[in-house]
Simulated scan of single mutants.
Amino acid sequence: MLKGKQKRFLRAKAHHLNPIFQVGKGGVNDHLVQQVEDALEARELIKISVLQNCEQDKNQVAEEIYRPAKAELVQIIGNTIILYKESREKKQIVLPN
């Protein structure tokens, strides 16, 4: 569970990132969740864009992605979801206490 200070730190780090996944009309599926897990292992911090044609609510989309991926939800801002998961092998981000 992330603390407020850690979430602020991650939001600042994610500010310059571009979304690497888009959720559209098809919604969330197992393949997308697996790709998100792989990306989190490689990068630790990612953005996901929820497109206008997505039939699901952005909060529901976020929950369907971060829970199976065992990631932390940093923020949902507009139609963008920010996720964090500490990498087992390629640790790059050091969180403040």
Results as ranks from 00 to 15, higher is better:
Gln52Asn: 13
Phe9Pro: 00
Ala39Ile: 03
Glu64Tyr: 04
Ser87Lys: 06
Leu32Trp: 12
Asn29Cys: 01
Ala71Leu: 07
Leu10Ala: 05
Gln6Ala: 08
Ala39Ser: 13
Leu10Phe: 08
Glu37Met: 14
Gln35Asp: 12
Gln52Pro: 13
Leu45Arg: 01
Gln60Glu: 15
Arg11Lys: 15
Gln35Cys: 00
Gln60Cys: 01
Arg11Tyr: 01
Pro68Thr: 09
Gly78Pro: 08
Ala14Thr: 08
Val36Ser: 03
Ala71Asn: 10
Ser87Val: 02
Leu2Ala: 08
Val94Lys: 14
Glu41Gln: 13
Lys85Gly: 03
Gly78Ala: 02
Leu45His: 02
Val28Lys: 10
Ala42Pro: 00
Glu41Lys: 03
Gln92Val: 00
Val28Cys: 01
Tyr84Ile: 05
Leu2Thr: 06
Glu86Arg: 12
Lys58Trp: 04
Ile46Tyr: 01
Leu45Gly: 04
Asn59Arg: 10
Lys58Val: 15
Leu45Thr: 03
Ala42Ile: 03
Leu73Lys: 11
Ile48Ala: 04
Ser49Asp: 12
Ala42Met: 10
Lys47Cys: 05
Ile48Tyr: 03
Asn79Lys: 11
His15Gln: 13
Arg11Thr: 09
Val33Asp: 07
Lys3Gln: 11
Arg43Met: 14
Tyr84Ser: 02
Ile76Gly: 05
Asn97His: 08
Arg43Gln: 14
Leu45Cys: 07
Tyr66Ile: 00
Val28Glu: 02
Ala71Glu: 11
Cys54Phe: 03
Ile81Gln: 02
Gly27Glu: 10
Ile46Asn: 01
Met1Lys: 11
Asp38Glu: 15
Gly24Leu: 07
Gln52Ala: 14
Leu40Glu: 04
Glu86Ser: 06
His31Phe: 10
Asp38His: 10
His15Gly: 07
Ile77Tyr: 14
Lys91Met: 09
Glu37His: 06
Met1Val: 12
Glu72Phe: 02
Ala12Cys: 02
Cys54Lys: 03
Val36Trp: 08
Gln22Lys: 14
Gly4Phe: 09
Lys7Leu: 06
Lys25Gly: 09
Arg67Met: 13
Arg8Val: 08
Glu86Lys: 13
Gln22Asp: 12
Lys25Arg: 15
Ile82Val: 15
Ile81Asp: 01
Arg88Tyr: 11
Lys47Ile: 06
Asn18Arg: 15
Asn53Cys: 07
Lys7Gln: 11
Val33Ala: 07
Leu83Cys: 06
Leu73Gly: 10
Lys58His: 10
Phe21Glu: 01
Thr80Glu: 12
Leu51Cys: 06
Ile77Cys: 09
Asn97Met: 06
Ala69Leu: 06
Val61Ala: 03
Val50Leu: 01
Val61His: 07
Asp30Tyr: 05
Ala14Ile: 08
Lys25Thr: 13
Lys25Glu: 14
Val74Ile: 13
Lys58Tyr: 09
Glu64Gly: 00
Asn59Trp: 09
Val23Ile: 15
Gln34Thr: 11
Lys3Tyr: 08
Lys70Gly: 05
Pro19Val: 01
Gln52Phe: 10
Val61Leu: 04
Ser49Asn: 11
Glu64His: 11
Val94Ile: 14
His15Phe: 14
Ser87Asp: 08
Ile81Cys: 03
Lys13Glu: 14
Val36Glu: 11
Asp38Tyr: 05
Arg8Trp: 02
Ile81Tyr: 06
Lys58Ala: 10
Val28Asn: 05
Ala42Glu: 15
Val50Lys: 00
Pro19Trp: 06
